[in-house]
Structures are given as C-alpha cells and as structure tokens.
Design a protein around this nucleic acid. Structure first.
Lengths: 262, 262
DNA sequence: TAGATCCAAATGATATGATCTTTGAGTGGA
DNA sequence: TCCACTCAAAGATCATATCATTTGGATCTA
C-alpha cells in the first residue's frame, strides 16, 4: 500500500472525511436528503452492516448521529424509520451541505436567502453599536476592495471579498447565532456565483450599498446600516428570483413516481 | 385511549429519555454547556466508561453525537477534547435546551430574542402573501382570544395563545427554516413568563399589535404586517431588556448578595 | 365469535474483549 | 541541533454475545 513515500501527494482529510464513520454517514445523509430513502421507509441495522460492509459499531454510531439531527428514529422490533423533512434540523451545517448537493438545492438556497434577508439587516443594525474601531475600519476597507475588484471584473476575488464582508458584519453583530449563519451565507453566495446569477461587473448600486453599510456601521448609525443592508438583500433576492421561478413548485402533493424504492 | 389504572403515575419515556445513551448524553451535554467541562480539557473513553458505569458502545455513541454538534473533537493518542462555544451548533434544539438550563440562560434568551426580532417581521411579511384563507382566519381569531385572555388577566392562557400565535405566523411564512424557529420562540416566551417579565394585564398596545399583525396578514398587506411585528418585537425586547442589564455586567459596586456561586 | 391473555420472534440496546490505525513523544545517531 | 526511527497510548473498528422491549399472532376464556 503506502510505504510512506516522500511525496505524500494526497494526504488530505484533516477534519472529518476519511474513516468509515464519515463515509457511511455521508452516504446515508445524502440518500435521505436526496429522497432516495423516502420518509416512512424502514431500514435495519444488520442490513446496513451488510450493505456497507462495516461493523455494527460504525453503523450504530452513524445512526445515533442521524437520529440527533432528526433524520431517523429507531424503534425496537421495527427498525430504523426515515423521518419526514419536517423533523430535520435544517440549521445543521451538515444537513445544509447535503441539501445543497441534492435535488432540493434550489429550495435550500431560497430558504437561506430569505433567512439572510431577515437576519442581515438586523445584524448590520446591531453591528453599528457593537463593532470595534479597527473592525469598522477593516469593514470599510473591505467595501473599498470590493469596489476595486468589481471595477476590474475580477469575479473570483469579488466573491471572496463579498463573503468576507458579510462574515464580518455577522461577526460584529455580537450575536453568536448570527455568527453561525456566516457559513450559510457563504454557501449562498458561492451558489449564486456557480449559477451565474451575478453580472460580470457587479451593479454599481450593489457596490455603493456595501460601502454604505460599512460606513453607516462605522458611524454607528444603526438605522442607516439596516436600511442599506435591506436594499442589498432586496437586490440579491431579485437576482436570484429567476432561480426559483424556473424551478418553482414541483407540486409535491401526490408524489407521482414511486421513485427508486430500492 | 388510557385503559390503564388511575395511578400509573410515572409512565414516562416516550421519545428519548430513558436509556443509557440519553442519560449520558444529557449529563455530558449539560456539563459542557454549563462550563463544568472547560474548553480544552480532555477526557478519555475509558474514564467515561468508569464514571458512568456503562459500556464503551454507549460512550462512543454519545461522543459521536456530541462531536456532531461541535461539543468535542476526538483525536487519537490524545483523547476527547472539549471544544469552545464558538464551535457549537447553537441552532441545535438540544443545545438550546441545555443552554437555557445552564448559567448562560440569560445570554441564550438574549440571542434568541435578537434572532426573533430579525426573523419574525420578515416571517409576517412572507406570511401575508403565502397564508391560506382559513389559516388567516384562525390567526385573526387567535389574536381575538389573546385580547380576551389579556382582559381577563388569565396569564397562563395568554402565554399559550401567544406562543400559538407566533407559531402560526412562522408556519405561514412557508419557510422551513423559520418554522424550525418556532420552538425557540416558545422557549423565550415561556422564559419571559417565568421571569415575571410580563405585566399581569398585557399592555393594551401589545394586544392591539397582535391584532394588527393578524389583520394585515389576512389582508395580504405584507408591509403593514412587518411593521406591526417590528413594533411587537421592539416592545418584547424592551420588556426583557432588564434581564440582560441586570445580569450583563457584574456591577459589583452595590453587591447585594454573593448569589449562587454553586 | 369476540375479546383478553400469553408467548415467542424480531430488532434495537448494551456489554465485552480483541485487533487495527494513527500519532505524540521519546530516543539515538549523524 | 536536528532528523529518522521506535514505541506506546488512545481512538477506530470489528466480532460476538446477551439483555430488553415491542408486537403479531397463537391460545385461552366467556
């Protein structure tokens, strides 16, 4: 196998990927999010042990995690039942990753975008009264860099700066829960970029609004910061509207295809 | 339904309590949230096996769950490290329960209240365009019942109606993530009640605002619904402000009693 | 026949002991 | 001093066994 050669090319996997647990968890989580395992269907441990060719320990540990995020419910004499999406911990970063990688990606993007629309303006408002001097300066600087990147048409750089900008505002809000939404925002922005929903040269308005938000926060004008962020959100929402309008409602009522079934 | 004898006092354990797993998880989760296990400190599996007198299976399953919510990180040759609060999944209902039961209760209430302030107005706005006729009628009816309960000074009933009212608005928003915040709102309202932060006779204003929200939603006037909800949130926030102001900064000058200390 | 009671299989829950894998720390040589 | 090597600690995984609960169906009684 790997006699530990000098190059060590791959050797990634710092956080949580390699390992049987992660592998099985990933597979099951994806399957449930993707609807391949429909709500109500039942698994049992031994079956999973066979299917993934791992030990009971691994399977049980995975099931405990899935249960803790509301994906399944284990009952004696019955088995492991898949629970409906309404029971899922939709704020769990892992769940969000899976959903963004599934067919429900658009719906997930929409949910998060609406959440952003609600939260970020208030975060900007709070940040205005809680941010530190240096942080505020950095924020204004970031807005300036965004302007530069926008003018230069450097989309990649703009995206990263955009993510960083919103991250800082959420951080400065001083609310631990808002801070945690930072990663969701990053996902949405990246998703928007992937779907080519951003003009090559960001709207002049958007650039100005970022600058407004930063400045208002620095001047500790919470109300103005909120207003500017609201406008920013409205524009972002409009840009993405085409996404859900083209994928609109799949009419989930009477689920036509028996799908997979396995 | 209940053929059992009249006594049968206990009869607990429907969802997730009884069982070694739940017991150990609860204990460790509480300890970490409460700061009894400081970030950076290290545990090891065998130690936990001894401490709780359970098998490794149970301990490992608990640790996997704790790891999935960011409480711990297991590393070979080292042990199980407690992670800082900044790594926690603060949206996990379980985490919120633990925190509300810990010394950080006030801070948790504050975070959630700020989140409500951000989300509920937007939820009302969205509900105005997405709610069904019957649901809207029910909402108006609920506001009316709240008025009645408020007039009658029936605090218990008012609390329940209040929770139900906000639950319905979040549900009607049509956003799965907002819906999930419903349980947090319930916790905050209950907490506010426990701390006697509500006047025995709810403010006339608050009653009127609930009615306004309901009516605006029914009339599909999103902007008005949002405004009314904003006012509602501002009042609620003001009522609770005393909570964090009295707990926020030590203020040892007029130190009445050494309080808790545990 | 209808209903209450009891039994046993199914399946998750827990326990236990062994082995594999990773990795921090110590150790020795250049 | 520094790098390579070795070793052991601790989690990760495996295999097996036993316990406990649930539930469908057989059995018994009125």
């Amino acid at each position: 196998m790997e006699p530990s050669s000098p190059e060590v090319a791959a050797a990634p996997a710092r956080p949580a990927d390699s390992g049987l647990h992660a592998r099985v968890l990933e597979h099951l989580g994806t399957a449930i999010c993707g609807g391949e395992l429909a709500p109500g269907s039942v698994l049992n441990i031994d079956e999973l042990v066979d299917r993934y060719a791992v030990s009971r320990s691994v399977v049980r540990e995975v099931l405990r995690v899935l249960a803790s995020i509301g994906f399944i419910e284990a009952r004696r004499r019955v088995g492991v039942m898949i629970r409906p999406a309404s029971a899922w911990n939709v704020f769990d970063p892992q769940v969000i990753r899976w959903r963004l990688a599934s067919a429900g990606r658009i719906a997930q993007l929409r949910s998060i975008t609406e959440l952003r629309t609600a939260v970020e303006p208030h975060a900007a408002y709070l940040a205005a009264s809680r941010i530190g001097r240096d942080e505020a300066s950095d924020l204004v600087g970031l807005a300036a860099k965004m302007w530069a990147a926008g003018e230069a048409g450097d989309e990649e750089r703009f995206l990263h700066l955009d993510i960083e900008f919103h991250r800082r505002v959420l951080l400065a809000s001083g609310n631990e829960m808002f801070v945690r939404l930072q990663e969701l925002v990053a996902e949405v922005l990246t998703g928007r970029h992937k779907h080519h929903l951003m003009p090559h040269h960001p709207h002049e308005q958007a650039l100005q609004m970022h600058a407004d938000v930063a400045q208002a926060i620095q001047r500790r004008d919470g109300e103005r910061a909120r207003q500017a962020m609201v406008q920013l959100m409205e524009q972002a929402f409009d840009e993405m509207k085409s996404l859900w309008e083209q994928t609109a409602l799949p009419d989930r009522s009477t689920d036509g295809g028996p799908t997979t079934s396995r």
